[in-house]
Write a protein that binds this DNA or RNA. Structure first.
Length: 493
RNA sequence: GGCCCCAUCGUCUAGUGGUUAGGACGCCAGGUUUUCAUCCUGGUAACAGGAGUUCGAUUCUCCUUGGGGCUACCA
């Protein structure tokens, strides 16, 4: 049993990196017959974006990574409510009081302007990385430099304040990361982070630790960008006297040019990929392989298979460039994996949108079969099946083909021969059609392509399409001959 | 700048002291008795550099270099 959580902020659409973090958390939980929890970290009122929480939930639902507990599309589930941090302010207040009491935190009354000025001064004085601790703590206005009475007076007077973590001096924080191993941080490099903002909201550091503890999270899987603040979190757990969960910092997803994944260099929000027609199975499969591998050469995995194979010790340490070259290939693999019936069912509504006849087409499965190996996106299906639902244009430029050695003045003869030959076929199927046409070509001393190209071009009206034999079979004898006859007439003119 | 993380083909990766350094995507060539696609076969291409440890380093250690992250009253 294990409890993991995905804890996004509603500050933007869910992006692929976030989905991967969610996936790893989901896989870990399921692998250990545990619980996957979704918590919304909405403590930043400035960056809050309307609708993004819904986008996150819907995207997770699309990917079939629905949380077992926490915030869901059906509302909050579980006995650790609420799961929105903005509704847990009293919980943080209590926690802060505890830290204040144990002197692990202190009040600070400095304004942003004062802080900025002091940092400038420090830099000029040769301190490259001014931190509130060490260099600034004693120079600023806070409960470490002010008397108890002064502090009380300021608070009573309504002065704004934040509460900061008191990082102990001369201390080494030791912590273990499931992916990176043992880590050490000197406390001199850790800043006295703000825990409670002047608006009464907690920062990530506080809220995150308090909630992970309250929600019994025992494995924290999050992005590598959190690694530098890990010692602060460890210090908080120590200050509270709580048991620490295990930590696993997964490598970042990178732009093609190397930096942290961002817009500008292409699509990064999952919604973009959904819109472009990628299947959830494909996205999940692709994301799983970015930073993780099964240790075998297998590459196609369903969510269930991933649950079975997943383990943190096969997660990569280095960042992975989010390069979608392989995504299209994967999509093709998945499309080809569907049974003919499944495939037909999935494209039928899409084709029917353009060609209503497709909806009640008894031969739809056969038609769909012709293109299952030829498409990467379902939306390509309509065009590729168009010739079944409308009369193809007869285009002499297309029917004659230099490459196939078919000149324009040969076309009429070839079409006549085709009609004559095909009319004689009594059992109409791919095999018999093929047989008689190959025989025809041989008799007339023509190359197969000289007969087949015109046939396919007339039947489909397209430069690229499924093969002539299979199209003719599905079209049926009558329709095939009808199209040939019509073409012959037009070509003669 | 400081702190932290990382480093195998262009990309995703296998490898855990001795391998012709393997696979996949992409690309190139050929084949699959019509096009496109699929599929098959073959090819292209990598251990960042330098010391050290060792009989022997891609693998262990250190340094350099390179890349990335963090450095907010954002997460």
């Amino acid at each position: 049993m294990s409890r993991t959580r995905f804890a996004p902020s509603p500050t933007g659409m869910l992006h692929v990196g976030g989905l991967r973090t969610a996936l790893f958390n989901y896989l870990y939980a399921k692998k250990n017959e545990g619980t996957f929890i979704l918590r919304i970290e909405d403590t930043d009122r400035e960056r809050y974006e309307e609708g993004t929480e819904e986008n996150i939930l819907k995207t997770l639902d699309w990917a079939k990574l629905n949380p077992d507990e926490g915030v869901t599309l059906e509302g909050e589930k579980g006995d650790k409510k609420p799961y929105h941090q903005s509704e847990r302010l009293d919980v943080y207040k209590k926690a802060i009081d505890k830290l204040l009491e144990s002197k692990n935190a202190y009040y600070a009354f400095d304004t942003t302007e004062e802080l900025n000025r002091m940092r400038e001064e420090e830099k000029k004085a040769g301190n490259p990385a001014p931190k509130y601790d060490i260099s600034m703590r004693m120079r600023m206005k806070n409960s470490l430099t002010l008397s108890e009475e002064e502090v009380k007076n300021k608070i009573d007077a309504g002065d704004e304040y934040v509460i900061r973590l008191k990082v102990p001096d001369n201390h080494t924080v030791k912590v273990f990361d499931e992916i990176r191993g043992a880590l050490e941080f000197k406390s001199s490099s850790i800043d006295d982070a703000v825990l409670l903002k002047s608006d009464g909201f907690p920062t990530y550091h506080l809220a995150n630790i308090v909630d992970d503890n309250a929600m019994d999270i025992d494995m924290v899987i999050r992005g590598e960008e959190w690694l530098p603040s890990l010692p602060k979190h460890v210090l908080l757990y120590e200050a509270f006297g709580w048991n620490m969960p295990k930590f696993a910092h997964v490598p970042l997803l990178l732009n093609p040019s190397g930096g942290k994944l961002s817009k500008r260099q292409g699509d990064v929000s999952v919604s973009d990929f959904i819109e472009r027609g990628y299947l959830p199975e494909v996205m999940i499969n692709f994301l799983a392989l970015l930073g993780w591998n099964p240790g075998t050469t297998d590459e196609i995995f369903s969510l269930d298979e991933l649950i079975e194979k997943f383990s943190l010790d096969r997660v990569q340490k280095g960042g992975a460039i989010f390069d979608t070259e392989k995504l299209d290939w994967l999509q093709g693999q998945w499309i080809r994996k569907f049974t003919p019936k499944e495939f037909a069912e999935r494209i039928q509504p899409i084709v029917a949108k353009e060609f209503p006849d497709a909806r009640k087409d008894s031969k739809f499965v056969e038609k769909a079969q012709l293109i299952q190996d030829r498409i990467t996106f379902f939306k390509e299906a309509s065009e590729m099946l168009s010739f079944f639902y409308l009369d193809p244009k007869v285009d002499l430029e297309l029917i004659a083909s230099k490459k196939q050695k078919v000149t324009k003045d040969m076309v009429a003869d070839i079409v006549s021969m085709l009609i004559e030959t095909l009319e004689k076929i009594s059992t109409w199927n791919e095999e018999t059609i093929k047989e008689s046409i190959i025989k025809l070509a041989k008799e007339k001393e023509l190359k197969n392509g000289q007969v087949l190209w015109p046939l396919r071009a007339i039947l489909t009206g397209l430069p690229y399409s499924p093969g002539a034999f299979e199209v003719a079979e599905v079209l049926g004898k009558d329709e095939t001959l009808k199209r040939l006859a019509k073409a012959l007439e037009l070509v003669k003119k």
